[in-house]
Design a protein around this nucleic acid. Structure first.
Lengths: 264, 264
DNA sequence: ACCTGAACACCGTTCAAGT
DNA sequence: ACCTGAACACCGTTCAAGT
């Protein structure tokens, strides 16, 4: 067997997913091979990577740290993955497996299904805050993400969105969810790093900004907004903003061309 | 004078902008001090940082690389900035100075102004592709960004969006622009890395995906979409998608509570 | 006040060598 | 086939020392 990086190196084009060779230990039918001495395989490595990223974040992740976790030397990992970036792409698509695309035969209203899709994506991003940092680096055409995209297009079609507008509409929704979830995840991450609850961090931030920034007219305006939308927990505020913005989007799709649920 | 990192270290709370001390060489009225031997100051450092980030990207940027560019030892820079992250925040707000918020006394239709705001933000993000990577890491409350946020809220107010919905609406728009510009910038970056034009990369990617991915029904669907929206350059496709999605959003804002342009 | 050099504790990755 | 150790060319940052 040949090491994982034996692959045409077209810079900018390359991705784990375009590797012709099936990843070891996952695919090939009943190909019973001898277990490797260390019990290592792509699956176990990816799993450990996700666990480490969830626990300590993208910044602290390193090949050496991962190897230590696996009880192995840093270089062993390179037998199974070509490099760090490929491993991160694998990790990304692994958590994309948590996404729940709707059953294509389900006849629920397309708006409801679109909300579920968006909510599912948001939960993945917020639940694994390192994903947004990686989605901004990779093309991400892993199999799970692919399935999710396809399901989204299908929902749009059911909503009667004409084919030439499906791309733009999907784009509007998921780019929004990405941006939104990213800032939410970032805020939670910041709180965790500071050893504070999100609500404590929120109050502290507000106080600091009020005290230090010159343009405190903005601060007054934004506290008004806060107050206007109700003084609950930060998580509730995020949830409400998300739901509201998403409704804005869906209303916009309907108004600019989406049908009433009749596929065309 | 005291080095730049003499500041309360509240993890998670800290940011260059919350530093009480005015940044050297920028603020204090007519305080004529002797020039430093090397001609270094925060301004010049930030400028060189932006130039380097524009030229080589975030991944290749390092304090040592920057110092070399400035003809100075790596450690000199630390007299002016506390650490790499602070410097990056400075660079981020410097390019945020390119944003053009509308004149508050301008009476142009709020939808037009909102489009200008969004377009300006998009240009900044795409023109400096490293910014999206940083915006996903920092709170980013630098003065230029602050001014831009304030202007956006003002436009919403003029559009008659009620106060409790301004936050969500702004969020919907700018999170969308961020996500969209990010994937656009990413694609351009990838092309540059590969030494291809964006259109070449686009054709190659399509070919590869068609050849390698099993779920090529998706491919068929997506080429149909491509064809449906016209077969021009990638830049034009991005431009059209952006404009369309933005219109969807604005229509949504109008339908869900925005007025007809009458401030309230 | 400002700048340097040496040092510390890390990185990702290559490569020749082991079993 | 799989794993290791040593090595290369880097990092960010601290710290004591120079001028």
């Amino acid at each position: 067997m040949v090491p994982a990086d034996d692959r045409a190196k077209k810079p900018g084009m390359r991705s784990v997913w375009l590797d012709a060779k099936a990843p070891r230990g996952s695919g090939g039918a009943g190909a019973r091979k001898a277990e490797p001495a260390s019990g290592l395989d792509r699956e176990r490595i990816t799993e450990a990577t996700v666990a480490l990223l969830d626990a300590e974040g993208l910044a602290k992740f390193s090949m050496r740290r991962l190897a230590a976790e696996l009880g192995v030397t840093a270089m062993s990992v390179y037998w199974y993955v070509a490099n760090k970036d490929d491993l991160l792409e694998l990790a990304l698509d692994r958590v994309a497996g948590e996404l729940s695309p709707p059953d294509p035969d389900d006849d629920t209203d397309w708006r409801v299904q679109l909300r579920q899709l968006a909510q599912s994506y948001r939960e993945m991003l917020v639940g694994h805050p390192w994903t947004t940092g990686l989605l901004s680096r990779f093309l991400n055409i892993g199999p799970h993400m692919m399935a999710f995209s396809r399901a989204s297009i299908e929902v749009m079609r059911k909503g009667g969105v004409p084919v030439e507008r499906q791309g733009g509409s999907i784009s509007a929704v998921f780019q929004f969810v990405y941006g939104f979830a990213n800032s939410e995840a970032q805020f939670y991450q910041r709180a965790a790093d500071a050893g504070l609850t999100v609500d404590e961090l929120y109050r502290e931030s507000m106080g600091l900004i009020a005290g230090e920034i010159e343009g405190s007219e903005l601060f007054r305006a934004s506290t008004e907004i806060m107050a206007a939308r109700g003084g609950d927990t930060v998580a509730e505020m995020y949830g409400r903003d998300f739901t509201y913005s998403l409704d804005v989007l869906i209303a916009g799709i309907e108004v600019t061309g989406g049908g009433a649920g009749r596929p065309e």
